[in-house]
Design a protein around this nucleic acid. Sequence first.
DNA 1: CAGTGGTCTAGACCACTGG
DNA 2: CAGTGGTCTAGACCACTGC
Lengths: 262, 262
Amino acid sequence: MTPNSPSLADPSAESGGPGAAAPAFSPLYQQIKGLILQSLQSGEWKPGEAIPSEMDLAARYRVSQGTVRKAIDELAAEHLLVRRQGKGTFVATHAEQHVQYRFLRLMPDQGDRQSEGPAERNIIDCKRLRASAEIARALALRSGDSVLQARRVLSFAGRPTILEDLWLPGLPFKGLTAERLSQHHGHMYELFETEFGVRMVRAEEKIRAVLPDAAQCALLKVGRNTPLLSVERIAYTYNDAPMELRRGLYLTDTHHYRNVLS
Amino acid sequence: MTPNSPSLADPSAESGGPGAAAPAFSPLYQQIKGLILQSLQSGEWKPGEAIPSEMDLAARYRVSQGTVRKAIDELAAEHLLVRRQGKGTFVATHAEQHVQYRFLRLMPDQGDRQSEGPAERNIIDCKRLRASAEIARALALRSGDSVLQARRVLSFAGRPTILEDLWLPGLPFKGLTAERLSQHHGHMYELFETEFGVRMVRAEEKIRAVLPDAAQCALLKVGRNTPLLSVERIAYTYNDAPMELRRGLYLTDTHHYRNVLS
DNA sequence: CAGTGGTCTAGACCACTGG
DNA sequence: CAGTGGTCTAGACCACTGC
């Protein structure tokens, strides 16, 4: 293959118009990355499974192993793939012990999550309804589209600590019910993966300090003057499609939201 | 050089004892990375300056360009170096427009920071004192060691929004005064870099929701029942040495703390 | 032992910057 | 135009896993 010729895919193929972008050189390994991404999206390789070896992929795409390697490097850095020396490269999954809490940043002030024990999950509510304009915008739907809303409380050591409301697009999550959620032991994103083929790969959170309303007080068993962390999350699957809106209230008297700036 | 022989540095050199670690194979590029890191710490290459070209470094360390490249790749991923195609590789600095706010995650709900305009900074207080046990622990000092404490208010569009207390180890920041802080226009970490040779490279934050005390209310001009975001930060320089403890109170009625989970 | 990912090299060529 | 980082290749060898 001629080096540097964008022959596998051409991201410069735009609709044109005034002020169209420059020729947009795209390195080979980026194109390979795109092809691997496509296979991940299409479900050719499922979460937890091994993808073909670097040599196999190099042969398949007619490039050198080093080029495939660089593509996989980036996908591994984005946590879409996991490399295991001597074994292979695997599709990342939420059903792994050490990745379980990648998206939950609330930590106990003393000790770690191990010592704290597993969270107790209580589904309060789960129903289908029509998306409001606000929900629709967040999930890239249209107002009135079917959405699934759920509410739950997470408790640590018997103490209610997190109250979460979440909204999911109705179509991809057809068949999800309160029973299904309650019966499932383990993490929600694990269920989404195995039952609905929806893998969350990235999320954005907006955090504020708020005071709870009466209903929230009752569920968290706190007074009206207890300041709470409001955490609004939008989670995305492959190709940046929003797949979940989640609004959490965190009690932060014995826990804190941990963040690393780098 | 013989491949894979850890001849440049030997991280396995430990104090021994029972349960001492295995031989600890260390790849060449990691050793090169360590050497570059040393040059950064020692100030051989200063923030904003270019480091030698990849070819020069390869010759200097007697390895191939590819090995140097991989070392630089990691340092660039950690934001310690910045690559600029056609120009060179530069030591990262806080004195760059697009990196200005890497450590401040508070964003306006509407618009971006550009439209909001620059923050107004008011130094309330700045004094030297002896470290309490708590402060000493956070900064890896001993109780009673000299520390510098400062308090300031940041306002956006004339509205007080952030109240910050910060503690710095006395020794590295000898000569820092309230005047120096007030006169400096621009960012604090920029001042630390240029005036004291202390470059912050990483930080950890613990976030909680709290209610303010009377003094905090007065400075932020809010009522006692206004929930605020409490952000406790420890910032680290090279080699993970803590160099700053900062406690911030953020008003989140028109702003939010933004975080990306990936 | 074969198969996997991980490291290292040497060399060619490309894209970008600035004099 | 020379110098820099960026890409790509081909091949050798190392470290780790599991049969």
